[in-house]
Amino acid sequence: MKTIFELKQDMATLGKQIQKTNNDITQKATDPTVTAENLRQMQQSKEDLQQRFDIIKTQHDQMELEQKNSLAKGSFSNATDPTQKVIDAKAELIRKTMAKEAVSAEIYQALGDNDASGGSKFLPKNVSTDIIVEPVAKNPLRNLSTVTSITNLEIPKIAFTIDDDDFIDDEDTAKEIKAKGDTVTFGRHKFKVFTDISETILMGTNTNLVSTVEANLQSGVATKEKRVAFATAPKKGEEHMSFYDDTVVGIKEVAGKTMYDGIINALGDLADEYAENASVTMKRSEYLKMIKELANGGESLFGKKPEEVLGYPVEFCDLAVTPVVGQFDFSHFNYDLNALYETDKNIKTGMNSFVVTAWFDHQIKLASAFRRVKITP
């Protein structure tokens, strides 16, 4: 059985065919070379198309009425619990978008948005506090980096200065600020996240609908964040987002004969103010390989936490081709408050997608707060 969205598309296709046939009849009716029999055949073809259109429209109107009646039962306006009201509002936003209907201001207000575009709360800045189920993909930097949602954000690189000093203790930091300036301005880089929604999920409970869509959207966002932050060949205009970029960011490399030596040397090369709150981001496979080498046939190290082995916390990321160490507070993701919601047909799967267009930027506020590990056996 076709979905309501497929019926809409069929009606649009038949409508165009009917219009084309009608134009052909009008044009050829004045042509003396066209026989009356040909005109009757064309008229019959138009009537057949119109009959098909009417049948599909009847099915569409019936399904649409049933859907509206079903959605009315789960309307968010009946909820008294604040948390449930937000869930119901998000469910209504999804369903209205999928049905290509206008989203009311009441829904945006329930989501905490009062501006004309609204709905920006749908992509929360803190995943753990605003999502019902955990996303499939995660960005480990979410545990370390700064994440905000502020339009036209501009911040100082250094949080404070001393009024009777004209220098910064760390030489690398002083050189960087002199070369690049003492403020960071966040830009707007557009990206889209798609999540396919089946009729079963769309017609299900508000909680299941919102949890499914949010988990999928957050997985897409997490994947995008990881890709730009650990891109070895960043897209044009996104070079400044990557820890591995040497053209704009230029994080210092520190070498070691082994992975362990390289990480320890890199951590030791950090200035004290960065080393105190430093972390390590690396591939899990590289970490396990390093532990195997350090254990030298024993098993005692395999049961220890990474911070017990290295003395610093470790976050694992499959895209970290070489370890990055440093104070990840200086890695900052910022999302623009505006977001657009659309629906799109996935021609590969036949599913209908809920699409969020958002704008964000990742700034490495101080390259001197980080080091990249290089192995030189």
Rank of each mutant, 00 (worst) to 15 (best):
S117G: 04
F53Q: 08
T376N: 11
M11E: 04
A320D: 02
Y341T: 03
F191R: 11
I150S: 04
T322S: 14
D318V: 06
K226T: 07
I263P: 01
L93T: 11
A12H: 08
S211R: 08
G311M: 08
K8A: 05
G297H: 06
D113G: 06
D81Y: 07
K73D: 12
A110Q: 12
G311T: 09
F122G: 02
D164E: 13
R372I: 01
K257V: 06
T343I: 02
D115Y: 12
I201F: 04
S368M: 01
N38W: 06
N296P: 10
S77F: 04
T30E: 13
R40P: 01
K180F: 02
A222C: 09
I4C: 01
I201A: 07
Q363F: 02
I364S: 00
K345S: 08
A99N: 08
D182I: 02
N78E: 10
K57G: 03
H189R: 06
K8R: 14
F53W: 14
A369E: 00
I263V: 15
I375C: 08
L144P: 00
K348I: 07
V193C: 12
D115T: 14
V133K: 14
D272V: 08
A137Y: 14
A29Q: 08
D170T: 05
N206L: 03
A79W: 04
E253N: 13
I375Q: 07
E176M: 05
T80M: 11
A29Y: 06
A233E: 12
N143Q: 12
V147M: 10
F122P: 00
N69Q: 14
V324Q: 01
N208E: 15
V147F: 12
G237S: 06
N78D: 09
Q59P: 01
I162T: 09
L270I: 11
Q44Y: 13
N114M: 10
K121A: 15
